[in-house]
Amino acid sequence: MYRILVCEDEKSIADALEIYLTNEGYEVLRAENGIEALETIKKEELHLILMDIMMPKMDGIKATMRIREEKNIPIIILSAKGEDYDKVLGLNVGADDYVTKPFNPLELLARVKSQLRRYTNLGGIAEKTTDNMVRTGGLEIDLSTHEVFVDGEQKKLTPVEFGILSFLAQNAGRVYSIHQIYEAVWNEPSVNTENTVSVHIRRIREKIEINAKEPKYVKVVWGVGYKVEKI
């Protein structure tokens, strides 16, 4: 039974979140602002925090910073602020994920699950580690068994998709153009094959990302190519 703290000043949203989370079998604790959240964290044992940003007394960014000073509980920021720099700020101060309002309840729940899985199964994953394992963030690629795990959950990829993903993940952080990817994966010169790669990439994203439109692992660098984020 995981315990989740919902830190949200808007009561209706907090209620809705509680309903969803309770339905999924989590125990929900609530706080109306950052200070309350900090107090609760001191008293209770928690597994995850859903944090709003714009709250009275102490905002979500400050609270996250404070929490991170002591604990490494997964924090998902849930905010109406959807600008890029808001997201970057949130993730930089220590949040593990950023979901914008209005959110898709299913997506949110998926992200919650994913975070919990990572948080609780961390030791197990570590055990599995071998030389043929490529890992970035919650993405794990076993090169010997051709298996792909996202936050511990296995994803089924076609051989081409696996080739592309493993190629990018092995060189995480580096941007590869469509041509380079094609030549590396298909092992033959690329002539008018651009669409193939980008379609494959989209499919990979749909399989491994929670929200394909806001990918966490496989990212597009527009006009240049693709890369797997080094996390």
Partner: peptide, 11 residues
């Protein structure tokens, strides 16, 4: 490349 990528997204 950008157009290709975009088409890929919209395929």
């Amino acid at each position: 490349s950008l157009v290709n990528q975009a088409i890929g997204e919209f395929s």
